[in-house]
Design a protein around this nucleic acid. Structure first.
Lengths: 210, 210
DNA sequence: AACTAAATACAGACTGGCCTGTTTGTTTTA
DNA sequence: TAAAACAAACAGGCCAGTCTGTATTTAGTT
């Protein structure tokens, strides 16, 4: 039986398999390059070389640079989701306290070098309207699940289910990541996270103001 | 009486005056370009055009691109200091509550479009070791005064003088700025700041854990 | 005060290099 | 046999840094 062409889904045919592998390699190489040299010095030949692939292959799978950037971004989002499942198992959203989830988020996502790739892409998207649209689209559909996870975590921690409080946590982690990227102060961020968690513990006793 | 040549201090001679003016114009143009098109598409000819200046003038005052970036960064830091003095007067560090200072910091620094220029520069500095060194140098000497301001604000607010708590506030503002730059959600950030200030009010009553 | 020589400020052209997107050709798979 | 995957070369464009040339300012001298 012949299988339908699945250009973007799970690989079934041999071609689709190769295609998916190649796309993954290129996306991963793009993230690596982004981490190492930043968006400024990033170039499509550099990514192809990093992936050990000819430039023809790269242009075949990602005709425009922006396409590759979007692919890298989606690759990142997916890796974050995989990290969550790998850490907390299949019960998704996980039933853990905010403290546990914060430490996970820092250790596995925001505190990792690869997160600066996401930052670079988000910054670069400001200039390119087309790229920005596609990145926001990817982030928006991913944010649905992310929101559900945070809601469950807050509920489980006995805290009010509050959009603003979600964003406080994420903005804090983002800001720490920027600080980490620029001012390689690792231990400083650990102290900041500890202090924030201590504050959160207090909030467990004293819920936030109306 | 003849005045000594002050190549970098307050302008006295006519040449030094023109030089300082030109440098200011170029730094401001660099920030504007950075805000509008981002670091990726930034170029020295673009900056010169934005400043209404010949490229020869630009290369004369800033031989290398990195020099101009450092100048723009220092220009930004200075503008933040000026904003603080303009808002709170000459009593420096200002004697205001944390809430007042947070709202100022968001309104006049982190929440303004020009802050993304600082973010772009900090991101770009990751790749360029030389640029990064000079930017960190500028930031470090500025951080001395910034630390004094935060300490006084925390003390005045009856909160513990705590480095980690300082960094929580600044990382939160940074993270909000990134969110603002990418996901033009203005009102969302206002709500986040309000919520954070509400939490801080609680902390005024219940000091953080040891 | 006038004059000169050096230093500084400014202007514009040039070059070597790299990048993006395209195109043409070859191999593998369906 | 057609389509997809891969390979490599090409063309147009832009940029950073340099260099040569001109105008303005300053310092030194008388």
């Amino acid at each position: 039986m012949s299988k339908p062409p699945e250009p973007h889904g799970a690989a079934s045919s041999r071609q689709a398999q190769r295609s998916a592998d190649m796309r993954r390699r290129l996306c991963q190489a793009a993230i690596d390059v982004l981490c190492d040299v930043g968006y400024e010095r990033l170039s499509t030949p550099l990514i192809a070389a990093r992936a050990g692939v000819s430039r023809g292959a790269q242009t075949h799978h990602f005709p425009a640079k922006a396409d590759l950037m979007v692919g890298a971004f989606r690759h990142l989002l997916q890796s974050w989701e995989e990290a969550r499942v790998a850490t907390f198992g299949t019960t998704d959203p996980p039933r853990v306290t905010l403290e546990t989830y914060l430490r996970f988020a820092w250790r596995e996502i925001f505190g990792k070098p690869s997160y600066v790739a996401a930052l670079e892409l988000m910054m670069a998207a400001r200039a390119d309207e087309r790229l920005g649209g596609q990145l926001r689209e990817a982030l928006d559909e991913w944010a649905v699940r992310r929101g559900a996870v945070w809601r469950e975590v807050l509920r489980f921690s006995g805290l009010r289910d509050d959009d603003a409080f979600q964003h406080i946590n994420m903005s804090l982690l983002r800001g720490m990541a920027v600080h980490r990227g620029f001012n390689h102060a690792e231990s400083e961020n650990e102290a900041v996270l500890d202090e924030w968690i201590a504050l959160v513990r207090h909030m467990g006793v004293v819920p936030p103001a109306p």
